[in-house]
Amino acid sequence: MPPISVSIPSFRLENNHIERGYTVFRIDVLINGRQHVVEKRYSEFHSLHKRLKKSIKPPEIPSKHVRNWVPKVLEQRRHGLELYLQTIIMENEVLPKIFLDFLNIRHFPSLPKTESCGSLDTDSTESSKLSHQPIMVFLKDPYLLPDPHGLSGTFPNVVIEGVVRGVFYTDLQPR
Rank of each mutant, 00 (worst) to 15 (best):
I4N: 04
S5L: 00
V6H: 09
R20C: 10
V24I: 14
F25A: 00
I27K: 04
D28C: 08
R34T: 02
Q35H: 02
H36I: 08
Y42Q: 05
K53A: 14
S55R: 05
I56C: 03
P58Y: 08
E60D: 06
P62F: 05
P62N: 07
H65N: 08
H65D: 03
V70F: 11
K72V: 14
K72C: 10
L74Y: 05
L74R: 13
E75Y: 13
E75R: 10
E75I: 09
L85P: 04
Q86A: 04
M90S: 03
V94E: 09
K97I: 15
L100C: 13
F102C: 04
I105S: 12
R106Y: 11
H107K: 11
S110C: 12
L111C: 09
L111W: 13
T114K: 11
S119V: 11
D121F: 12
S124G: 01
T125K: 10
S128Q: 15
K129E: 11
L130S: 13
S131P: 11
S131E: 14
S131C: 12
P134F: 10
I135H: 15
F138T: 01
F138D: 09
L144C: 07
G150Y: 01
S152V: 00
S152A: 04
V159P: 07
I160Q: 03
G162E: 09
R165W: 09
V167I: 06
D171C: 00
